[in-house]
Design a protein around this nucleic acid. Structure first.
Lengths: 229, 229
DNA sequence: ACAAAAGTGTTGGAGATACACCCATGA
DNA sequence: TCATGGGTGTATCTCCAACACTTTTGT
């Protein structure tokens, strides 16, 4: 049996919660394979831990280190790879195409700001897709993304990890919008601010927004160093 | 690489929260191997899902079906099997002793009442151990048990799964004691009862305790059918 | 009658919710 | 000066914590 790791990478662009999807790689020489979109993932190497494998995948794809990354579930149905297109792809791409693959799901939070500069280098193979408009994906990846989103919602409330998706400097309105989009419901502005302040994870900078067409907002940064798994 | 499933089986005996431990099997013919205690587990078969593997292990060991069972974490450090004794055991017992093994951790809740009748058949190889007095275990099983306990505490509060550890009929005092032992802190009797009643998961039976040396307690049963994963 | 656990309500404080107006800026 | 989002406080209610005495049974 083979073990792989799949990473559901979340990003946020002021307006939408996004997931990073790749096109499956085109096997050399063959071109008759129908490619599908998928979540980035790879087989675990002989000498790396699961966490390391997830980091490696993320690093190869985004050139970013020290990103929030967390294991959330193992997917091991014998028929999780059952689609015809999935099997075609495996046959032309894997050294052991018939081997069963069990995958460990990770989810990851990246600041799209840090990310975009690098985008050109892999733009052809990776793209951000609105989490609420995900197309049909390879293997059982739709299921994996769904579960990742559930876990993200839960951990957002429990551990206030939302900052991981925002730039270093952010306004409370941006933060609130992030919460609203992830949780998919509206929040009260005053109560939201009280709550965030009470968690004591955020400090105001000596700096305000500029160049906006309305009263400029106070900028904040995260207080405590953030966890990286 | 091989995949195994390990089950941390919790039980409750009115007084202590217990974990089911087995002695590692003695390989035929060889007797120089030092055996250690471990959590029950086995390699995943070619055609079963992870959940099925966990159920199979539990069934073989306890003859019980329909038990609460939940995946909680994958353990995949390349050196999670590093002890000398662990390697000795693998060498004499596994067909591919040097293969790396990644294990998926499950935890399970059983009613020790249902369980005890069968005990004789495997008493030699399995035993209940107080979760707060666990000896040194094989592989990384101490770590696995610790994490299972953390998850159990969390899910007890979130989903009120405590009933799974009690007999069909139970008193509120038993239930409270269970919570106190799992959470490792005392609870207020009146507040506890209010809380449980508010969850609306429990109904009184037309029956009371008997044969006790004090005021007999009302017996309750679970209201909603319990989940089995 | 006594020992042992069962059962039962109230009060005070903290946290959650609901809600509306003035402010600073760029156009 | 106007349009736009930024920023702020209070009243109410619900939830949680603290706390002590009476009841029923077996011995």
């Amino acid at each position: 049996m083979d073990i792989s790791v799949d990473c559901v990478v979340f990003g946020f662009d002021e307006d939408e919660l996004k997931v990073l999807l790749i096109e499956q790689k085109q096997p050399d020489g063959k071109s008759a394979i129908k490619l599908q979109k998928a979540v980035p993932g790879d087989l675990v190497d002989e000498n790396e831990s699961l966490d390391q494998a997830a980091q490696r995948i993320l690093l190869e794809l985004t050139s970013l280190k020290g990103i929030y990354l967390k294991q959330f579930h193992a997917f091991g149905d014998p028929d999780r790879v059952s689609g015809l297109k999935d099997r075609d792809w495996l046959r032309s791409f894997r050294t052991h195409p018939e081997r069963r693959v069990i995958t460990i799901g990770y989810y990851s939070l990246v600041k799209m700001d840090d990310f975009n500069p690098q985008a050109a280098s892999f733009a052809a193979k990776a793209q951000w897709v609105d989490v609420y408009k995900i197309p049909s994906l390879a293997f059982d990846h739709n299921n994996i993304v769904d579960q990742a989103l559930q876990v993200l919602r839960h951990e957002l409330m429990a551990d206030h990890i939302g900052f991981e998706l925002l730039p270093e400097k952010f306004t409370l309105s941006q933060l609130q919008k992030l919460y609203e989009i992830i949780l998919d419901k509206k929040l009260d502005k005053r109560n939201f601010r009280k709550n965030i302040m009470r968690t004591d994870t955020v400090t105001p900078l000596e700096e305000k927004q500029s160049g906006v067409y309305h009263k400029p907002a106070q900028l904040f940064k995260v207080k405590r160093p953030r966890k990286t798994t």
